[in-house]
Measured scan of single mutants.
Amino acid sequence: RDEMEEWSASEASLFEEALEKYGKDFNDIRQDFLPWKSLTSIIEYYYMWKTTD
């Protein structure tokens, strides 16, 4: 399955904003920016995001 497909463009930009603010503190990212996403989903997205450019 492709996690990228499940993320909207606005969620992707929220994620990048959160990453700038918190770094890899995924709990804070989830709490402040993406509370409707699971922690697992955020972490999986991060690793996919990191490996695609």
Results as ranks from 00 to 15, higher is better:
Arg1Met: 13
Arg1Gln: 10
Arg1Cys: 13
Arg1Thr: 14
Arg1Tyr: 10
Arg1Ile: 12
Asp2Gly: 14
Glu3Ala: 09
Glu3Phe: 12
Glu3Pro: 07
Glu3Asp: 12
Glu3Arg: 11
Met4Thr: 07
Met4Glu: 08
Met4Leu: 08
Met4Asp: 06
Met4Gly: 00
Met4Pro: 07
Met4Ala: 04
Met4Trp: 05
Glu5Phe: 05
Glu5Gln: 08
Glu5Leu: 08
Glu5Asp: 09
Glu6Ile: 01
Glu6Val: 15
Glu6Phe: 11
Glu6Ala: 14
Glu6His: 15
Glu6Gln: 11
Trp7Pro: 03
Trp7Lys: 06
Trp7Glu: 00
Trp7His: 01
Trp7Leu: 04
Trp7Asn: 04
Trp7Gly: 08
Trp7Met: 00
Ser8Ala: 04
Ser8Val: 00
Ser8Gly: 06
Ser8Trp: 09
Ser8Lys: 04
Ala9Val: 08
Ala9Gln: 10
Ala9Phe: 03
Ala9Gly: 04
Ala9Ser: 09
Ser10Tyr: 11
Ser10Phe: 10
Ser10Leu: 12
Ser10Trp: 13
Glu11Gln: 02
Glu11His: 10
Glu11Ala: 05
Glu11Leu: 04
Glu11Lys: 06
Glu11Asp: 15
Ala12Leu: 07
Ala12Arg: 14
Ala12Thr: 10
Ala12Pro: 02
Ser13Arg: 14
Ser13Asp: 09
Ser13Ala: 15
Ser13Val: 13
Ser13Asn: 10
Ser13His: 10
Leu14Ile: 07
Phe15Cys: 00
Phe15His: 15
Phe15Leu: 04
Phe15Met: 07
Phe15Tyr: 00
Phe15Val: 09
Phe15Ile: 02
Glu16Thr: 04
Glu16Met: 05
Glu16Ser: 09
Glu17Asn: 05
Glu17Ser: 08
Glu17Asp: 07
Glu17Ile: 05
Glu17Met: 09
Glu17Phe: 07
Glu17Pro: 03
Glu17Gln: 06
Glu17Thr: 05
Ala18Asp: 00
Ala18Glu: 08
Ala18Thr: 00
Leu19Tyr: 15
Leu19Pro: 01
Leu19Arg: 05
Leu19Ser: 04
Glu20Lys: 12
Glu20Gly: 09
Glu20Met: 06
Lys21Asn: 00
Lys21Arg: 08
Lys21Thr: 07
Lys21Gly: 02
Lys21Val: 07
Tyr22Ser: 07
Tyr22Leu: 06
Tyr22Asn: 04
Tyr22Thr: 05
Gly23Trp: 01
Gly23Pro: 02
Lys24Asp: 11
Lys24His: 08
Lys24Arg: 11
Asp25Gly: 07
Asp25Pro: 02
Asp25Gln: 13
Asp25Leu: 03
Asn27Tyr: 09
Asn27Ile: 15
Asn27Gln: 12
Asn27Ser: 13
Asn27Asp: 13
Asn27Val: 10
Asn27His: 08
Asn27Thr: 11
Asp28Pro: 07
Asp28Arg: 15
Asp28Gln: 15
Asp28Asn: 11
Asp28Phe: 12
Ile29Arg: 13
Ile29Leu: 08
Ile29Ser: 06
Arg30Asn: 13
Arg30Val: 15
Arg30Lys: 12
Asp32Met: 15
Phe33Leu: 11
Trp36Lys: 10
Trp36Pro: 02
Trp36Val: 05
Lys37Asp: 04
Lys37Pro: 01
Lys37Gln: 00
Lys37Cys: 03
Lys37His: 00
Ser38Thr: 05
Ser38Ile: 05
Ser38Gln: 08
Ser38His: 08
Ser38Met: 11
Ser38Lys: 02
Ser38Arg: 03
Leu39Ser: 06
Leu39Arg: 08
Leu39Ala: 05
Leu39Met: 06
Leu39Val: 09
Leu39Lys: 07
Thr40Trp: 01
Thr40Ile: 03
Thr40Asp: 14
Thr40Ser: 09
Thr40Met: 08
Thr40Val: 04
Ser41Gly: 00
Ser41Asn: 06
Ser41Gln: 10
Ser41Cys: 04
Ile42Tyr: 06
Ile42Val: 07
Ile43Ala: 11
Ile43Gln: 13
Ile43Ser: 09
Ile43Lys: 14
Ile43Arg: 14
Ile43Leu: 04
Ile43Pro: 01
Glu44Met: 00
Glu44Arg: 13
Glu44Tyr: 02
Tyr45Leu: 13
Tyr45Cys: 05
Tyr45Phe: 13
Tyr45Met: 01
Tyr45Lys: 02
Tyr45Ala: 03
Tyr46Met: 00
Tyr46Ala: 02
Tyr46Leu: 02
Tyr46Ile: 05
Tyr46Asp: 00
Tyr46Pro: 05
Tyr47Asp: 10
Met48Phe: 14
Met48Tyr: 15
Met48Ile: 06
Met48His: 14
Met48Cys: 12
Trp49Ser: 14
Trp49Lys: 15
Trp49Tyr: 13
Trp49Gly: 11
Lys50Leu: 07
Lys50Val: 14
Lys50Tyr: 11
Thr51Ile: 08
Thr51Tyr: 14
Thr51Trp: 02
Thr51Lys: 05
Thr51Pro: 11
Thr52Leu: 09
Thr52Gln: 06
Thr52Arg: 13
Thr52Met: 08
Thr52Tyr: 08
Asp53Tyr: 06
Asp53Phe: 08
